[in-house]
């Protein structure tokens, strides 16, 4: 061969593929992957969180040479993975409470340190409610102390386990059981909510990243990078929920992708409070493409529609794109 041809049909957009160099394939492409969250769990069909959890924990397992302890907040992930008498986890795993996973993980890390175990690493994980609402105090404490824990939030934008109630991650205008699609301004209120990744950055912890279940290479790279560091690290992963979003189970990854491509879920990395990298949008789409397939936004398109609300959501996406420079030609 005269010259190495790096190009391949799908490049690194797919999970793997037979011609890529091994180091360019994802952990998920290998037959040796750990399946940290294995079959038989009771997540709904097309569950983004189940997928995100396996992606993230498998990557962390590989980075930690399979010496990893996971602490799990109460929530869907916990409930569907460990109903007595069956567990789907294939690593040491502890569930304590809804709001304390960061503190429990800090305790595990302290115990390992006390015992001189420098090899075993600690990962804590929870949903958006457990992370940004009820567990936020503990999370902030973990950041503040720079505990040697990688915290992963699987964000499906509401309390799904309890039947789809609003969380601080529920997007504007989304219908939930506690923000019904009735009245003059149906769905969740505009302009509220928390951005935990930015708040994490404000703690100036070593590493903060956002990731999406639609971009596995990016997600694994971020988990791997995080695992290569010590101290408190935070990764926020967007995981669509067919049940709560009113979407088809087969559309989970598509929706995650559209969230990224529309600019509503920007992908970036920060070290010590400063953004160091962003994942550019590949094919920009209007927010409507993302919102329309989801029943939780159906009221935006019913009858005369909610043009103003749509415009406001589009403005949010545009602001993200400007703020993080997600579309390179729009930066300057």
């Amino acid at each position: 061969m005269s010259q190495r041809v790096k190009f391949y049909q799908t490049g690194t957009f797919t999970v793997g593929n037979r011609l890529l160099d091994a180091d360019q394939r994802t952990v998920q492409a290998t037959r040796e992957r750990n399946n940290s969250l294995t079959s038989g769990h009771r997540a709904c069909q097309g569950c983004g969180e189940a997928l995100g959890a396996r992606y993230a924990v498998d990557a962390a397992m590989r980075a930690a040479d399979n010496r990893l302890v996971a602490v799990n907040a109460t929530g869907c992930l916990e409930v569907f993975s460990t109903p007595y008498p069956e567990s789907s986890w294939q690593l040491p795993w502890l569930h304590s409470l809804f709001g304390n996973a960061p503190a429990v993980a800090a305790g595990v890390a302290a115990a390992l340190r006390a015992k001189g175990d420098t090899r075993t690493r600690v990962l804590a994980q929870g949903g958006d409610g457990g992370t940004v609402d009820i567990g936020f105090g503990c999370l902030s404490g973990m950041f503040d102390r720079n505990d040697d824990v990688l915290y992963i939030c699987y964000d499906n934008e509401a309390y799904m386990n309890t039947g789809v109630q609003r969380s601080a991650r529920t997007p504007a205008a989304a219908r939930t059981a506690t923000t019904p699609a009735v009245g003059e301004h149906p769905g969740n209120v505009m302009g509220q909510g928390k951005n935990p990744a930015l708040i994490a950055m404000a703690h100036e912890i070593p590493y903060v990243a956002t990731a999406s279940v639609a971009d596995l290479h990016d997600l694994e790279a971020k988990v791997t990078r995080a695992m290569g560091m010590g101290g408190a690290r935070y990764i926020h992963i967007h995981v669509p929920c067919p049940l709560g979003w009113g979407s088809r189970p087969c559309d989970t990854i598509m929706l995650a992708r559209l969230a990224v491509e529309s600019g509503l879920f920007p992908l970036y990395e920060a070290e010590h409070g400063e953004v160091v990298d962003v994942t550019p949008i590949r094919r920009r789409v209007p927010v409507e493409d993302y919102l329309r397939p989801q029943k939780r936004f159906a009221h935006l398109f019913r009858g005369e529609g909610q043009a103003e609300t749509l415009a406001a959501i589009q403005a949010t996406a545009d602001r993200n794109i400007r703020r993080f420079g997600l579309v390179p030609e729009e930066v300057s």
Binding site: V15, R18, A29, A50
Partner: peptide
């Protein structure tokens, strides 16, 4: 063409 997508994206392994 063995891109591994199905293998990767299955939430149920």
């Amino acid at each position: 063409f063995e891109c591994d997508n199905c293998y990767g994206v299955c939430p149920d392994n």
